[in-house]
């Protein structure tokens, strides 16, 4: 075949690729923050004494962890309009990422809460802490420290998973890579560059998360 590698296509379109990477960063950061919230709320629900809180939380986790993210994206974007709920590609992709990662976060938060020995709560109560103070000063800091490494893994998975939302037309790094390939026919160079960009994003996120972990250890 007369194909000659030609990386000039990358240099010429670098601003576009970087813009794609930036969009991926934005979407992932937003989804991470909302998914933390989902994880905390559902994780607390899952450890609740009340069955009517525990039960829905447990089914939420199982449903979203045991089906492919891609199917969830399709179901939200193509399926929901049929029952009258039409979401934009952005909203669909974002919702799917949040719900999928939120389910994994829920399990992490639950495990973190359950890992705190009962004696910790008793020690706090015996010193006269109220329930709220016990949660604020004893449970949350410990649960957070226990959960952080596992949460970090979920965040990195989310960053990689965000590539899937390109299939419903949400614009981010993978979408721009596909687009660029379509006009330049330089699949090897473009996908190679996109792969390198993802690697750079994943490394940066791991690095930032490691710093946050260390900071939080010192802070609380």
């Amino acid at each position: 075949m007369g194909y000659k590698l030609n990386f000039s296509v990358i240099w010429k379109n670098l601003p576009l690729l970087l813009k794609g990477a930036w969009l991926t960063v934005e979407v992932s950061t937003g989804a991470i923050l909302v998914a933390i919230l989902v994880g905390i709320v559902m994780g607390v629900a899952k450890t609740s004494r009340h069955q009517f809180l525990r039960f829905p939380a447990a089914w939420y986790v199982e449903a979203f962890r045991n089906t492919p993210l891609l199917i969830q994206i399709f179901l939200i974007y193509f399926g929901l309009p049929q029952i009258g709920l039409k979401l934009s590609p952005f909203m669909s992709g974002f919702a799917a990422l949040v719900l999928y990662t939120g389910a994994y976060n829920t399990e992490v938060v639950r495990a973190g809460l359950e890992a705190i020995p009962k004696g910790q709560i008793e020690a706090a109560r015996s010193l006269g802490f109220t329930e709220i103070q016990t949660i604020r000063y004893v449970i949350v800091p410990q649960a957070f420290r226990i959960s952080l490494p596992a949460l970090s893994n979920n965040f990195i998975a989310l960053l990689k998973n965000s590539s899937l939302v390109s299939v419903i037309g949400m614009v981010e790094l993978t979408f721009i890579g596909n687009d660029l390939t379509a006009w330049t026919f330089r699949a090897f160079e473009v996908y190679g560059a996109v792969t390198v960009l993802y690697l750079a994003l994943v490394f940066s996120l791991s690095w930032i998360l490691a710093i946050i972990e260390r900071r939080i250890r010192l802070l609380i």
Partner: peptide, 24 residues
């Protein structure tokens, strides 16, 4: 290991399916 674990699977598929033909 870092490359296979640090990039989206879909990108690896695209690279192998669409990209590798460039190398024959």
């Amino acid at each position: 290991m870092e490359v296979t674990r640090g990039t989206p699977l879909i990108m690896q598929m695209f690279f192998i399916f669409f990209g590798l033909p460039a190398l024959g």
